[in-house]
């Protein structure tokens, strides 16, 4: 219906954008030539020269920087994956508790969510590291038999040794994201009409069974998208691990950049590695979506 006009506005905009990008790139080139740096990725294959506090793959300072970055990427992945599991357990528990029959439990959960969400994550991480984990006695203490042993040297669960830094980041991220997930879960539970709750309660079905069979299948389609964005937030927030000295992707990239002076290249690699992490989480959540939501909608 509408007469197609000549796209003046778009052409002007395109020219403006191209000019700005051109000026920026030109400035960059001038600066790189001025400092004699240029662009090069040679340094990736040079020996890294720094130690990593922890590594899942064998690593030594004489290994290449690229290898150090890969090892740190795996460290990030490890802490993110563990935190996602723990945060989900905490968040689902706290979210369900806010709709529980027990008023004490409801208030406790509300207190947790309200408190955690008003305090910066970085401050919480510092607390977990410097106060909670480094404050442990140097002699290992085992509160639950041989299941778990705690000391300021590290944490051992069922013979699995975790460093203090890893534990602090794990607990800090999980507690913080758990509060956000609790809100997501509560919102999802609230999206299920009240009549559904009353119906299963009046049928004498227990709270847990009713939650599992009646409420959750209806709440999950609302919960899952918000949940995956919380997981992505968790992954992004894991970069704060640098503050407690955990050798994650950002911390090692930062060290590599300081050592080589290759800021632009290092930053590009950091972005690409992070993109890979994001894609991984997105892919996982989409697979979960297919598994969980489809069967629920079919019935």
């Amino acid at each position: 219906m509408k007469r197609k006009r000549f796209p003046w506005l778009e052409i002007v905009l395109l020219i403006v954008v191209l000019t700005v990008v051109g000026v920026l790139v030109n400035n960059l080139a001038v600066n790189l030539i001025r400092t004699g740096l240029g662009l090069s990725f040679e340094w990736l294959w040079q020996p890294a020269g720094f130690a990593l506090s922890e590594h899942t793959l064998p690593y030594q300072p004489r290994d290449s920087t690229a290898w150090a970055l890969l090892v740190s990427w795996l460290n990030s992945l490890r802490v993110i994956a563990c935190s996602i599991v723990l945060a989900t357990v905490l968040g689902v528990g706290a979210g369900a508790a806010r709709r529980s029959l027990n008023p004490l439990l409801r208030q406790l959960a509300a207190l947790y969510v309200g408190l955690i969400r008003q305090i910066p994550l970085l401050l919480q991480l510092l607390f977990w590291y410097f106060v909670a984990f480094l404050g442990l006695p140097s002699e290992p203490m085992a509160p639950i038999g041989a299941l778990i042993s705690l000391s300021n040297q590290g944490v051992a669960i069922l013979g699995l040794n975790l460093s203090v830094e890893f534990s602090a980041v794990l607990v800090g991220l999980s507690v913080f994201t758990g509060a956000a997930i609790a809100e997501v879960v509560r919102g999802g539970l609230d999206s299920v009409p009240k009549g559904q709750w009353e119906a299963f309660r009046s049928l004498g079905i227990s709270e847990l069974l009713g939650l599992k069979k009646v409420v959750l299948p209806q709440a999950l389609p609302a919960i899952l998208p918000a949940l995956s964005s919380q997981y992505l937030n968790l992954a992004k927030n894991s970069t704060l691990a640098i503050a407690v000295g955990f050798a994650d992707l950002y911390a090692v990239s930062d060290t590599a950049i300081t050592q080589t002076g290759r800021a632009i290249e290092g930053f590009l690699i950091l972005l690409l590695s992070f993109l890979a992490l994001n894609l991984l989480i997105n892919g996982g959540m989409q697979a979960l979506n297919r598994i969980v939501v489809r069967p629920a909608q079919r019935t």
Partner: peptide, 22 residues
């Protein structure tokens, strides 16, 4: 929205000057 804030701040502190005139 896909990048962590600390990376953006790092960009602002260390890389932004490289994109500006001398």
């Amino acid at each position: 929205r896909a990048v962590p804030l600390i990376a953006v701040l790092f960009f602002g502190q260390l890389l932004l000057p490289l994109f500006l005139p001398v």
